[in-house]
Design a protein around this nucleic acid. Sequence first.
DNA 1: CGCCTTTGACCTGCGC
DNA 2: GCGCAGGTCAAAGGCG
Length: 225
Amino acid sequence: MSSTSQTMLNQGLFDDQGIPSQMGFYSSSPNWTYTPFGYHQSLRTLNNSSLIGADHITSNLTETILSSATQKHRDMTSHLGDSEPRLVHRSSTNFWPWGEMSECLSSRRSVGDDRLGVTAMKMKKVKARRKVREPRFCFKTMSDVDVLDDGYKWRKYGQKVVKNTQHPRSYYRCTQDNCRVKKRVERLAEDPRMVITTYEGRHVHSPSHDLDDSQDPSHINNFFW
DNA sequence: CGCCTTTGACCTGCGC
DNA sequence: GCGCAGGTCAAAGGCG
């Protein structure tokens, strides 16, 4: 494993077998989406989705991650007779490292602030005060509806108008007890047809809705990241 | 009645 | 230290 990969392992991006743990991509299987939370029946309202960011991922690492993820998906779906996995990022603009993502979404934080570019003094301060940052994952979707059906139950706990955007950002929390996963939903300022969904944290449970499609998820749940 | 959304207030981090 | 902006809280009200 390269030193870069080792670093990513240390950051929790890969599991001990080198499989990416925070990546998600869009499967060509009908009604199934692979996310950092697992491979689940989801995003039924989605008609065009793109993975655009995840914590700690930089542009020059995405190909490595995606090829690894693709291989894993191949391994997983070979028995399903599915066609080739369709990677989510269909163009470079649809796939951004988290830092650029934050910038794009009008965050005032500079790129890399939460990673390497802070002074020791600041680090101490951050360590003392800042809450543990959960892994984050986001993608954009062309959709008329703001809230995509991702299989989990969410409760809205806030809405905020973000500077320089006409559309408010909504904040949701997973309703499951002991599950601290949150998501933010907003529309892209440059293209209001695009919905940006950002997940933070990992679910400690399976999707809550009843799985009413013909596909039985049980054999796939074994492959949760 | 329970669960949900709405919304203004409050908290926190950051730049100047 | 101050002001701004993002994120969260919690009371109030709506809905099934």
